[in-house]
């Protein structure tokens, strides 16, 4: 089945099996390995991407469902000036350790920055509930995203 997706501003057209998952399209067809495959059940959020501006778990979506949609992966968050504000803050404040979940937190953090109003610790805590970090704990991540959002 032929599908066309726009990932990080680039069109990707490919003939795929209907059963191909969006995360596999992103990693194997588009070659963007920043989006990770973690739990494969939609719990860990390491496969999170923005689909038409909304966060989705790409392991819970078929590639054919994303036909004609605009997708932003963790690679698409950084611009000409390098990492975006959330990525930079997560890095500078050492909010992450092994980095496996970095894609998920960067995506959801960026979405919070662009969409949420009156951001506070509790709101960020609720919004990041779909991303799991198994090494550093969440406090520093939540504080970092909250501070970046408050300084916007």
């Amino acid at each position: 089945m032929k599908i066309k997706l726009n990932i990080n501003g680039t069109d990707y057209e490919s003939d795929v099996e209907p059963r191909m998952l969006l995360v596999d399209f992103i990693r194997d067809v588009a070659g963007l390995k920043g989006t990770h495959v973690g739990c494969e059940t939609g719990s860990c959020g390491s496969c999170m991407v923005l689909l038409d501006g909304m966060p989705v778990k790409s392991c819970l979506m078929l590639a054919v469902q994303a036909e004609g949609k605009k997708i932003i992966t963790v690679e698409g968050l950084s611009g000409k000036n390098g990492l975006n504000k959330v990525q930079k803050a997560l890095s500078e404040r050492k909010a992450l350790q092994c980095g496996f979940c970095a894609a998920g937190f960067s995506i959801i953090g960026t979405w919070i920055l662009d969409n949420e109003e009156n951001v506070d610790y509790q709101k960020v805590k609720e919004d990041i509930a779909g991303v799991v970090c198994r090494c550093s704990g969440y406090d520093q991540i939540i504080k970092t995203i909250t501070e970046v959002a408050k300084n916007e």
């Binding site: 939609g42 959020g45 999170m48 689909l51 909304m54 966060p55 989705v56 778990k57 819970l60 979506m61 959801i108 979405w111 919004d127 509930a129 779909g130």
Partner: peptide, 9 residues
């Protein structure tokens, strides 16, 4: 229901 990434789908 779930988290924002689930509710968005």
């Amino acid at each position: 229901v779930g988290d924002i990434a689930i509710r968005s789908m």
